[in-house]
Nucleic acid binder design. Structure first.
Lengths: 332, 332
DNA sequence: GTGAAAGCGCTAACAT
DNA sequence: ATGTTAGCGCTTTCAC
């Protein structure tokens, strides 16, 4: 059975399609009597307005739809962010298209192209490593863009990030204060902006204590829990193994903690907090960031752009918090 | 600056809009020469086809968009499912609109109405407690629906679930085999189908051992980690406290594990596995289900429906796996 | 308060 | 190989 249209409703109610349009969209100029007859026909036929057709003709531009493009929707961090974005959108009567990029520039382009082809009003983007020049033309066409978690190189748009470098520096400073001098760095691909920042923070802290960075203790490119576990094993097999670890995201932290036992005496600080992180042994300290705040802030920025804000692009930096666990506990 | 249309491209390339349409959509009947000129104009103007307008006119029906409606996108379980669905959709060149219901029937209706107004080809639905009669008319209009995780009462659609009852029964049987007789049940709202099933499995196991259900040991309506922690505290304050716990979802399990210490001697089995669950103490056994398989299976069913499969609705039941950890470890 | 005509951006069907 | 006409489902505009 085909979906009924306004014409069908009009016929059933004995009025013109235009009157149905007005009634269905709650516009003035429909007498209570006709409105009732229209509503009756609507219910009987199970009519629902086709918003795609509507948006095509409406003078008020926009589709009340935004696109959310993240690295990996399955990652709890982005999942929390996505939920927060969705809540803000829902509050505005806006829908959310989602896409994961896997950090592949090619998939990012495909997803974004499909989104803009659907005329999304805006894009909330966790940019991949690749360039983003291809966004220029959609933006001139009216698609608003806001970056979250990482900036997009060479793209003048609002950006919401956290103080990655300072957070990492504080984490490593904490380890140094515990007397550690051989602190390993376990990170994801160096191409990712957050990873470069966190690495810089690691170096900052070491430098402040006059400790040279030992390349043997620095591992990049850890893309999974098993990568991290393998890197840890390699580090511990070193002649001078590290006595403390700094892990730069939740996946790596989990990989490392999964490979450590209660008997292992290493101090670990990880970027990102997660449920039950406080119940592990050896104890795990974390640099905690707030994905919900990240998502909500970015969504607000995007919506104010969609609402017509044409001021210069802003950069919002949210703060991280060091949570020390185990002996030497401090709080913040 | 306004978005260019086919007319603009046609003018720039010195051809008719129809030729642009053919060229842009890769249809035959365009000479290489004109195709090149069109492509040139497209690039210069930054033209992108408006797929909403396109879908309006196309004979091939459909928008290549599906709607995913889950309880809570931030829950790691649904996040994994969502990612899996998105991957399947991406493979088919299909986009995904997401919405969380919070298990509120009203929000579910709003989200679904907004999705169908956008002419989604299908709906992947984790139904709320409420009724779903309102789906009848969209379905007659051609919107395909598949339920995941839970069935929708009184709705004849494909459904993908796990063997909740058997999984719960096996979990509790394991605890009984360890010699426990006072096994507490900590569950979410009883209105949720999975919870009723899991509770039935709990009773099955007890009954098989001739143990009557002790109402004092059964707690429903635990909706957060703190609810679970509070319920646990109440249980332990009982004159005859439980010696083992069965927790019926990841949130409750985390709440309980967060409140227990290594010194606590209780056996715990939880429904749902999660990262590092194997590193906790006291040890945590789990009934593990596979959210990725759940999502992928449901997506496959939905797409075959969208592709025209009109056979009778199917019910697919995936299997859970008991993972025993700590002393008494077995494997499956 | 209601309706007829035109057109949003695109494509099916029929020309040429 | 290319163009013309009509119309998808809706809303704008302007009549009455």
């Amino acid at each position: 059975m085909k979906r009924p249209t306004m014409k069908d409703v009009a016929r059933a109610a004995g009025v013109s399609p235009m009157t149905v349009s007005r009634a269905v969209s709650g516009e003035p100029g429909v007498s209570p009597g006709t409105a009732a007859r229209v509503e009756q026909a609507v219910r009987q036929l199970g009519y629902q307005r086709n918003d795609n057709a509507r948006n095509l003709r409406r003078k008020i531009p926009g589709t009340s739809t935004i696109g959310l493009v993240v690295d990996d929707l399955a990652n709890p961090f982005y999942a929390l962010m996505a939920r927060s974005v969705e809540d803000e959108a829902h509050r505005r009567g806006c829908l959310v298209l989602v896409g994961s990029t896997n950090d592949e520039p090619r998939r990012e382009r495909e997803v974004i192209a499909a989104f803009t082809a659907r005329q999304v009003d805006g894009l909330l983007l966790v940019p991949t490593i690749g360039g983003h020049g291809f966004l220029k033309q959609p933006m001139e066409g009216g698609t608003r863009v806001v970056c979250v978690d990482r900036p997009a190189k060479g793209l003048a748009v609002d950006t919401v990030t956290v103080d990655n470098r300072a957070g990492a520096e504080r984490a490593v400073r904490h380890l140094l204060a515990q007397g550690h001098t051989r602190i390993a760095y376990l990170g994801d691909r160096f191409g990712i902006w957050t990873q470069r920042e966190r690495h810089a923070g690691y170096r900052d802290a070491l430098a402040a204590h006059g400790i040279p960075e030992d390349p043997a203790l620095v591992r990049h490119d850890l893309r999974s829990r098993s990568d991290a576990a393998a890197a840890l094993a390699a580090l511990r097999a070193l002649p001078g193994p590290p006595t403390a670890l700094f892990t730069t995201n939740d996946v790596i932290t989990m990989g490392v903690m999964g490979a450590l036992g209660p008997a292992d005496r290493v101090d670990v600080v990880g970027f990102d907090d997660f449920p039950l992180a406080d119940r592990l042994s050896p104890p795990l300290s974390v640099v905690s960031q707030d994905p919900v705040a990240l998502g909500a802030t970015a969504a607000h920025l995007l919506f104010s752009r969609i609402d017509g804000d044409r001021s210069a692009p802003r950069s919002v930096v949210l703060l991280t918090r060091l949570i020390v666990r185990g002996p030497g506990q401090r709080g913040s």
